[in-house]
């Protein structure tokens, strides 16, 4: 009898635990999906529908909001700036980050642990703290209000991730493959280009895309360091008060969609970054 009660109780606990689990998952999904859904509805509705009340829960598939957005002065330039800065960030963070990731994964050197910690620590300083001295320095060197200057700052933000992702990618490639290549007539460099590079290229792409998204989403440095050459985020922030509601929605949508698509495409490698095995 006591056995039966114990079994019954544990089954009960398990059942309620399961409900709690499902409810939590549903809540978290709603937390993320509902705002994005509203963003979608309002972007695909006519400006009149966006400003009226009550709101509809199904999109009208009216593209006049997006058309208005595209026609808004400075918007397309800002979009172009965003893409340019993000591309520069992407290239620079890989060129700097991937060799660091390789070194971390393949060599033993004094201070390796400290180096890894420092890489993470670069994310510990809030950007506003750095923005003022950076702005002063950029003005002195003439880098202020340029896409390259902003890309430099974004690269700094993206490098820790580039290093960590590439580190885990390189660690996933057995050193024996490189050693085999060396014994088969490769130098360190040719072994890298002929064996390691083809194997990590998909992961490098993922890491690059992640850097792109970091730059694409970044608003604070963009707002502080640029005036004429605003990126889309900074431009929208600047015009937030004055612009009509449907413009904000359309801008938000344009910002969210690429980031979402890219992150979805590279999710496998982001798991790898946190040490969750993906093969």
């Amino acid at each position: 009898m006591t056995d039966a009660t114990a079994v019954g109780m544990s089954a009960d606990t398990r059942k309620s635990g399961r409900y709690l689990y499902i409810a939590s998952v549903a809540f978290l999904c709603a937390w993320v999906i509902v705002p994005i859904y509203f963003l979608l509805i309002n972007t695909l509705s006519s400006p009149e529908a966006v400003n009226s009340f009550p709101k509809s829960f199904v999109p009208e598939f009216d593209f006049s909001s997006l058309q208005f957005f595209a026609g808004f002065e400075g918007m397309l330039t800002a979009l172009k700036n965003s893409v340019i800065v993000a591309l520069m960030t992407m290239v620079m963070s890989i060129i700097i980050g991937a060799p660091a990731g390789y070194a971390l994964s393949r060599f033993e050197f004094p201070g390796k642990g400290l180096f890894r910690l420092l890489i993470l620590l670069t994310r510990a300083f809030p950007l506003p703290l750095l923005a003022l001295p950076l702005a002063v320095m950029f003005i002195q060197t003439g880098l202020d209000d340029t896409a390259f200057g902003l890309a430099l700052v974004h690269t700094t933000l993206a490098i820790p991730f580039a290093v960590l992702i590439t580190f885990s990618l390189f660690s996933g490639i057995p050193i024996e493959l490189e050693e085999a290549a060396w014994t088969l007539g490769c130098t360190r460099l040719t072994a890298f280009t002929k064996v390691v590079l083809p194997l990590i290229l998909p992961g490098i792409t993922a890491s690059a895309i992640f850097a792109f998204v970091i730059s694409w989403n970044e608003v604070f440095a963009a707002a502080v360091l640029t005036i004429e050459n605003r990126t889309l985020t900074a431009f929208l922030l600047q015009n937030l008060d004055t612009s009509p509601l449907h413009l904000k929605f359309a801008g938000g949508f344009i910002l969210v969609v690429p980031a979402l698509i890219f992150i979805f495409a590279v999710r496998k490698y982001l798991f790898a970054m946190w040490g969750i095995a993906n093969r």
Binding site: P174, E176, L177, E179, A180, A181, T183, V195, P198, L199
Partner: peptide, 11 residues
């Protein structure tokens, strides 16, 4: 050299 874990290039 022949390695313990084969080291056959997967690509």
């Amino acid at each position: 050299m022949v390695f313990q874990n084969y080291a056959v290039f997967p690509h």
